[in-house]
Design a protein around this nucleic acid. Structure first.
Lengths: 190, 190
DNA sequence: TAGTTGAGACCGACTAGTTGGTCCGTCTTA
DNA sequence: TAAGACGGACCAACTAGTCGGTCTCAACTA
């Protein structure tokens, strides 16, 4: 699993996988029908977990601001648990077989929709600025958060919790109406 | 070149490359010592171009706000020209050979420093909020902008120019002191 | 001007090595 | 005792890379 993070899915052969896992060719192909299926399993366990978290956060809060904050913080928290899955998820998804791809794509789409809806609701309720494009803002937030997998290290200066708080601070400053930000002071930094 | 974007560097064999390029094995290996060198060339032409643009923008503007705006807009503009390079650059850099990796890493580092410096200067000059972490803010901006390669399509609703403007709008709202944003109205949306 | 030459551009059959995947046998456990 | 978990020798397919050869064309001669 750690091998994938370092060398990528294509950089690790099935022989290396079984050696690292202390099993055999037969054992591997007893559990997976192909290497591609392993790729899918990695994708699916990750996105399923993320989607569940986001759905829960989505139901818990009414306010779009708090919802957005909770979604981002929940998502960022998976970086500690699923570091290796993340690399695979973002780098190797082009190698998914079509039948697997549709499943992953659908769940990924749902996750995106949850964020989109939060932005849309925020605009409708008057909390967020009206000039925001729902689509671009969503992708900007996703990008900012997703990209973390490229540089985040558990042993780094900031904990993932701190990073999450700073992200929320940046995002809320970017989307909230300036004159309304005092209402959400507890979500902003300092 | 378009093949890489769709199938990834490992998903395209040398045979496919030469077929697509209308050349031969001999021809290919006359120009490149290995497939790895091609990978490096793609990386290098891209990052060199980006770095030059950023360095130019950096020198042109004194104000950190305008500098940041120019760097982001310049960077985003390469998405139209270097779409395929981008996918390779972000997805396949783990497969670079060590001697190539150091070269790319160094240039990438320089680019990051330029953004970092702009954030730092912005804080020092009092234009940007003091609670900002220079490192995290830099990575947040980079992430937001870099991620664009995953979803941007030339045929999409928004042009890359429009997307760049929205990014700048989001970023400036996120980093500028709220009471000072009226000074940069021409850089914000609407 | 016509002929010669030679260096670099390019070709493609070939190879050695590696890959994902198979298949039959054995071991474990209920 | 039998069904599923696992082992590992084996294989066909494909991979990046090689190498002796041909082609092209500019520079040089006579």
């Amino acid at each position: 699993m750690l091998l994938f993070e370092k060398h990528g899915f294509h950089g690790v052969s099935v022989n290396q996988i079984i050696e690292d896992a202390g099993t055999s060719k037969g054992g591997f192909y007893h559990h997976f029908t192909s290497k591609d299926e392993l790729l899918f399993v990695i994708h699916d366990t990750f996105i399923t977990h993320v989607l569940e978290k986001a759905t829960a956060a989505n139901k818990l809060y009414q306010s779009p601001t708090k919802r957005l904050q909770a979604i981002v913080k929940d998502f960022v928290s998976v970086f500690d648990l699923y570091k290796a899955h993340l690399s695979v998820f973002y780098q190797e998804s082009i190698y998914l077989k079509p039948q697997h791809e549709v499943v992953v794509k659908e769940k990924r789409h749902q996750f995106k929709q949850i964020i989109k809806q939060a932005i849309r609701d925020g605009k409708d309720s008057g909390e967020f600025r009206e000039t925001l494009s729902v689509d671009i803002t969503t992708m900007a937030i996703l990008g900012m958060v997703n990209w973390t997998y490229k540089w985040y290290q558990k042993s780094g200066i900031n904990t993932i919790e701190e990073i999450g708080d700073m992200f929320v601070d940046l995002i809320l400053h970017a989307v909230l109406k300036p004159d309304l930000s005092f209402m959400n002071e507890e979500l902003l930094l300092k």
